[in-house]
Design a protein around this nucleic acid. Sequence first.
RNA 1: GUGGCCAUAGCUCAAUGGUAGAGCUCCAGAUUGUGGUUCUGGCUGUUGCGGGUUCGAGUCCCGUUGGCCACC
Length: 392
Amino acid sequence: MFELRKRDGSARSGLLSIAHGVIETPAFMPVGTQGSVKGVSPAELRELEASVILGNTYHLFVRPGLDVIRHFGGLHSFMSWNGPILTDSGGYQIFSLAKLRKITEEGVQFQNHVDGTLAFISPEVAMEIQAALGSDIAMVLDECPPWPCQFEYAARSLELTTRWASRCREANIEHSTSNTEHRTREAALNFQLSTFKQLVFGIVQGASFPELRRQAAEALVDIGFDGYAIGGVSVGEPEEEMMRAIESSVPFLPEDKPRYAMGLGTPPQLLELIARGIDMFDCVLPTRLARNGTAFTSLGTVNLKNAEFALDKNPIETDCTCPACREFTRGYIRHLVKAEEILGLRLITLHNLHFYLELMRRARAAIQNDTFASFRAGFVRNYRSRAAPETL
RNA sequence: GUGGCCAUAGCUCAAUGGUAGAGCUCCAGAUUGUGGUUCUGGCUGUUGCGGGUUCGAGUCCCGUUGGCCACC
């Protein structure tokens, strides 16, 4: 259940209580696509105070597959993470990774990107997989239209996505009951999994068309979900268009349910989105950029591979309390990255996740203190990307 | 000492006698429901040195220096 505790303008702070814990919002969810936040152990995630992580239905379905996941009693047990998990439905990946997609009313047939095997995912299958994964929050299967996208295509796609959302809702209810019976045969280890009800979030699509976004939101609210995501953003569109998609969706979502902007975003974007009433985020930027040597700081991103850091004895960010900054210099981390030492990627990943999670903590505190607007303005003013001032 | 082979970008190597290139390194950039991948740019040359032949030499000839191999 979601308890909205504080508002500051349109920004909100709340508590989302789910099976494996409580999530304070606004919240950032580190992405753990294949049952692992790349390079980071569950213990480290706890130390970073990550309250929820994201797993991916598509990837885990393709590999290791449902039999293995079931054998280990679900994703929590498999990866040894006992905190909340949200699973993406795989909709986005089918469109970004898989080949030979064939979309029908029933579902999507595709060739997976690992070994090319043909597979089929329908709304019911997506929910079955997520039930087997045992995630706290499941996402509906959606079609994520590309950008740019014609109105006709977006409208037709949205109708299908809406029908799929409805089917996912029904499938979830069935699984919640049948699951309990099934799970009682599992080991005691899994008892907890059998006793909770998986939440389901709908996904607002509609590309860049405000009228479609509104239709999408209203249709989802009619069906009734535990939370509402905004999808079809961060697919290459300009930032203004992304913000417009958010602004044309949020007003039609209920106040008392969490709102999740999928796949976003840069630190300034997160604050802009919080200011527009978003509660949850996931984004690969902190982890992916880390693996390419880019670290987030309050002044913007720095590419630690750059020669200027070779002799730098400062931490990535002064006063940062993350595991990387407590012990290591920029010069050393630069060396590790240049030498392709795994530790370098890990340290920057830890730092970047810390940066994102700390940003959320500060945002929550600011909302509590009714100072969010000035906090946001101050942060954004301070934040500059050396790489690309316009985009990061 | 004699004979042979070799010498081109920081490295490993290309280049019919006709505008000296590639990969790696290095220097930068991209990355938004994952992409340790990948992609995109950029810098670098007295072609070991000195002569000669030629309209034109990294390429052919002579000398020389250095390296490697074989044989005394």
